[in-house]
Write a protein that binds this DNA or RNA. Structure first.
Lengths: 124, 124
DNA sequence: CACGATTACGCGCAGCGTAAGCATT
DNA sequence: AATGCTTACGCTGCGCGTAATCGTG
């Protein structure tokens, strides 16, 4: 299955018209991107890049695919933004001060009933 | 980063309203899906599922996110279909018969010049 | 020779299965 | 007791870095 990481890598490659440059920008090795492109091409059964010795160039299939893929990613990122906004206020961190004596009984029970909360203890 | 695999898992969960059922359908363990949901929720900072003891239910945030995410995935899959169509005829497998004597010199050179082709040898 | 993409090899970690745990009906 | 989600633990496969290779201007 093509993953988002791979698509982002492909997008960078297309923007830089170069594996080398994209690799540097993404802070990975050329080899990583070479393998990624190869994997996507194999999965699609279409060649996406024209490998030149002066970099790479999108084939027609590559241009079409990337244009559509970008729209999809755009949509997904909007979805994430919306979800993050929806989550505001309903989640977040809560900082409280409490005497240690209280921290042993009631608080422990509270955290047991509401898992996923993390308790940071600072001893006096 | 949220990956497509995770979104597909989330979609299955939403359809089945159950981790158990979705896990069976996807042929993974419940624990896998539990962790996936948790990971997405953490990344988004929003709770997507109401965990009941009779299964799960999408929260409002979950419904909204999944609706948008599904559209994005739909778009991506269209992009892949288009690319596969574009690749037809320009790629594919070519089966040839050839005498072994020819397979050593010319063919080897040919394959060297056109990498990524695989040669399957069937000895007589 | 320089530059840029490809490929072989080995490693570390993310994702998973197993199994135990916990809460509710 | 049965059902269903969560969590701890260890392993395996995948993605990556390193480094060597190939091919062209």
């Amino acid at each position: 299955m093509i993953e988002l990481r791979q698509l982002h890598q492909l997008i960078a490659i297309a923007e830089f018209r170069s594996l080398r440059a994209a690799a540097e920008a993404l802070d990975v090795q050329q080899s990583t991107l070479s393998r990624t492109v190869r994997a996507i091409e194999d999965e699609l059964g279409a060649i996406l890049l024209d490998r030149r010795h002066s970099g790479v160039e999108l084939t027609e299939a590559g241009q079409a695919f990337l244009r559509e893929a970008k729209s999809a990613i755009e949509l997904l990122e909007r979805a994430q933004r919306h979800a993050r906004l929806a989550g505001r206020g309903k989640t977040g961190s809560l900082t409280i001060g409490i005497q240690t004596s209280l921290g042993t009984g009631f608080l422990k029970e509270l955290l047991r009933r509401y898992p996923r909360r993390k308790l940071t203890t600072i001893s006096a």
